[in-house]
Design a protein around this nucleic acid. Sequence first.
DNA 1: ACACGTGTCATTGCGCAATG
DNA 2: CATTGCGCAATGACACGTGT
Length: 302
Amino acid sequence: MLYNHTLNDISTNTNTGVEFEIALFYKLLSNKPAEQHQVKLAIDRRHDRKKVEEIINYTSTEKIIRALNARGLTYKDASFETQNDEVGPADVVMITVDKTGKEEKIGLSIKYSNTCTLNVTGRKFITDAQISALKDKYARKYVPAYREYMKKEYGDAENWHRKKSPVTDQMIDEIRDAVLANWPNVENKVALMQNLFHAASPIEFWVVNYGRGGYDLKTVPSTIDVRRAKDVEVRKYQTSYIAFYLDNVRVGHMQVKFNNGFIESNFNHKGLRKKQSCDFVEDGLEFNYGQPFGSWNFSVED
DNA sequence: ACACGTGTCATTGCGCAATG
DNA sequence: CATTGCGCAATGACACGTGT
């Protein structure tokens, strides 16, 4: 089925990974040729239509249909739900029919070679006071250290893009210390865990994980008994992660990260200015401070 | 006083690509 | 070639200035 906005979304949305959602949605509409044709025309208006067509060519819905049948459900229709939180983590919602003729919705969370299941703000883990102190230290200590390191290692600022620095690791490590210190004080752990594990999705969802040449289907997403949230422990894990443990078993991990890099260029990659003001200029390039607390990446362990 | 545009921050969504 | 640190896009809330 198509909502009023569906075709427009398909033509214009450029969120990362949307190509895969569009391709699978297109294939699912095979039993609605008229709608599928409209979707095709919408895809043709995309700048990356070639890529979408490529994905369509190697995508078969067979695996999904079979899994539905094994569950006693018959596929009937699908809707395109990108960026719609109302349906939980699903990007596409399938309308199915059970043996008694009753409709049941099952969502598909569609991903391409990444394990992040949710982005969460660091503010759920540390206090405002901790954030203020860290922000202060960021501007006074870490940014100067970063500029010095990058200059020495990579030269002009135009060469800094996507390059790594130990300064970033140090700042992230300090944020992780703050998370560990504050963990006993975090109040709403059940709600937090429910959120992290999508344990209260309004619609059951399956995970479609694309790799090269196809996808894996997971009809039983990994989760924990969120009622035991107060027993969850946190520890540092690798360079930038916080790992979550229940009964000493790692059940998930979360990357503490800057949303758009340690520092942000004041121009997006299309060359558009992002802000009026900038925090500093390096080699004639405008930069703004980064966002260390937004968009941490949470992944469920398999 | 209030509507309206502009600018910024915060939140959430997602994959890419440097690195070893 | 897998990891894992780095980065891009959309959107809602809110503050603030300007015009009516």
